[in-house]
Nucleic acid binder design. Structure first.
Lengths: 371, 371
DNA sequence: TCAATAAGCTAATCCGTATTAGCTAAGGTG
DNA sequence: CACCTTAGCTAATACGGATTAGCTTATTGA
């Protein structure tokens, strides 16, 4: 099984030195002079041997390898949040292709749990069951998975890396940042004293705009339903809602944290309390908004009750809310990262917030005449 | 920004050689003897300096890079066939993570068209429009995209590669195979004299089984609706259908190729002709089966007409057909590839066919009493 | 007592590419 | 003719860690 050809092989074939091959193939001829005939000979030999540069070596010799990493803390191809992250990945891929970058998916700690012994790993299958499997390379997988830090460090084989996910493992990320490794988070981040570059979404403004619309339609008795989980994207939305509520002098008591199962009861109570509009947070799983939409099925919307979602629920284009520019999020993140890679000058971290597009929808109406 | 410490620094600090440091830190002490005191000194020094192994160097020094390529001829994150390829990718990622492999996504020629000049590329945006953009790295992108072969050769940066897509670019694949590069196709392949390793689906058997079920339910007047497009997965299904039809001594004329728009008319005519059951191919886009399900909306199914799909149409779990083990397809492909990578012994190409799970569904019934 | 072991460590290379510092031969200059 | 260019190329080395082939000293065995 012939080894992959290297520059030395081309050099031998073309009767030149490895240096010459490197110069010609990389196009780095600054100040160097090489005859056109040699150039052609080398290129021909490279073509014939099917030469492909080794990215690892390229990288070690401290150049670029045109690979950008994508590190997802769970799974790059999520099964449980079908449809939410996906458009972001599409955007990433598009822009990466456009910029001539390949994507390296670092399979984080998602698929694997700690191993029992050298030869066994517990793998969590997608349906939630845990299965025990033995594989040829479990050992390596376990060693790697043993520790988040190590997994994150691996990203350094790429020129830079996109990070993705709700939590920020501060220690390793700090380490990466400190070593000057280019990285960009997807989603707003305020950890590490704002030193993390990110491309996020302006949920504050978009959420405030939704509440403003309700207020303009005459609503004063509004409830905001949010998940119990704490993520920055959740608190940003809440901030937007509260800001809009405050400037409209609404009651500050509109925020309600609830689990999916409680939504039915809440809606009933709110109706009795004279609530005329409900705003619900859209999370990555989309279950909370789904629960609300289910709960209001017996009510005329927007005749009796106005409903708005802080985002866009799956399969419900008619609901008023806003569209998160997810594809653009991915695209932009790649661009910011590549900028960072190519500029290489130390400067302050780029932090970008993208605007959402309002969705008019048909679930916000004027306040119903009191019963 | 102080440079990260390397083994040499630890060696200096502990008063030993770099070799010793490597031995101790990697734990590869097979046959080597090192005193416990030295060991402790080195570990302490490493800890103190905050040593972290450089993954790039590690990989250069040990031939494998634990990256497997995924080459999709169009887009790794397809927008138009939402949901079909996705589970396969999920399976690939799961198994890759389990085996400690990272994934390198090679985006074939999908995202890019030929460039106009050195600095401009036409990028096809996802909604089908073509946009012109200028980017820092267009040149590289164009150079790469210029030619399929070059793109495919790049897959060699990984230890092996998974291929994905309807057509096989024989020349470059042949070249890869010839050079001993480990690769596995997803989907059955018969090109290149069967030298292509693959993990596919046994559509022949699964399709025959569906027809058998109809026959068992008493149907004799059956039509098989397939796409006009020719892919191996299509012809395999047709072979299965024909085989089952033949052994049941049905008319050979049951195969009908049609575009989505013609389905409505066909169904009407078939009903007049006394057809009692329709089988439709499920393609990656799923539009043909969708068209059929739409066309039979006015008909009682299975009361007046039995319907079966050779696959599983999206959002229609009630339809009789079979489930393609897509996740398993991805998983298995990774396993076969990693086997190939680690065994490295030349042997005949592994070709695997996975079985489908029948879906009983509720759209196959007994033949309706003739009107 | 002299060779054979073994214990504990290191020098030298290698992995594949990039880069810096020259080296050689041809041609031009004064 | 000695001296300098300049075009065209190469030797050497860096990058950081893995690995192979030894090289010292003690310790045994006969």
């Amino acid at each position: 099984m012939a080894r992959a050809p290297r520059q030395a092989d081309i050099a031998a074939a073309a009767g030149v030195s490895q240096t010459t091959v490197s110069l010609i193939l990389s196009g780095n001829t600054d100040g160097m002079r090489l005859s056109e005939s040699t150039r052609q000979r080398v290129l021909k030999a490279a073509e014939k041997l099917g030469y492909v540069p080794d990215p690892v070596a390229t990288r070690l010799a401290s150049a670029r390898n045109h690979m950008i990493g994508v590190y997802t803390f769970a799974s790059a191809f999520p099964t449980d949040v079908d449809g939410f992250y996906y458009p972001i990945l599409v955007g990433i891929e598009e822009e990466a292709a456009a910029l001539g970058q390949d994507l390296v998916l670092f399979t984080g700690t998602g698929g694997l749990e700690a191993g029992l012994d050298d030869k066994t790993a517990i793998r969590r299958t997608a349906d939630g069951k845990a299965a025990i499997r033995r594989t040829a390379d479990d050992k390596a997988a376990i060693r790697r998975t043993a520790d988040d830090k190590a997994a994150i460090r691996r990203t350094r084989i790429a020129d830079g890396c996109l990070f993705f996910g709700r939590h920020v493992p501060e220690e390793p990320i700090d380490w990466l940042l400190g070593s000057g490794f280019p990285l960009v988070y997807i989603g707003r981040r305020d950890e590490l004293d704002g030193r993390i570059p990110f491309v996020g979404v302006d949920y504050v403004a978009a959420s405030a705009a939704v509440v403003d619309r309700l207020v303009s339609a005459g609503h004063r008795e509004i409830r905001y339903l949010r998940s119990v989980d704490d993520a920055l994207s959740s608190s940003d939305r809440e901030r937007g809602v509260l800001a809009a509520a405050k400037s409209a002098r609404l009651s500050e008591r509109l925020v309600v944290r609830a689990a999916d199962s409680e939504v039915g009861g809440l809606v009933e109570r709110w109706r009795e309390e004279g609530v005329t509009a409900v705003v619900v947070e859209e999370t990555d799983t989309g279950t909370l908004s789904a629960a609300l939409l289910e709960a209001v099925k017996g009510v005329r919307v927007p005749g009796e009750l106005s409903v708005a979602v802080l985002g866009q629920p799956k399969d419900h284009p008619e609901v008023s809310g806003f569209e998160v520019p997810r594809r653009e999020l991915g695209r932009r993140a790649v661009r910011v990262l590549v900028d960072q890679i190519t500029s290489s000058g130390a400067r302050r971290p780029e932090q970008v917030l993208l605007d959402c597009t309002p969705i008019t929808g048909s679930t916000i109406g004027p306040v119903a005449p009191s019963a």
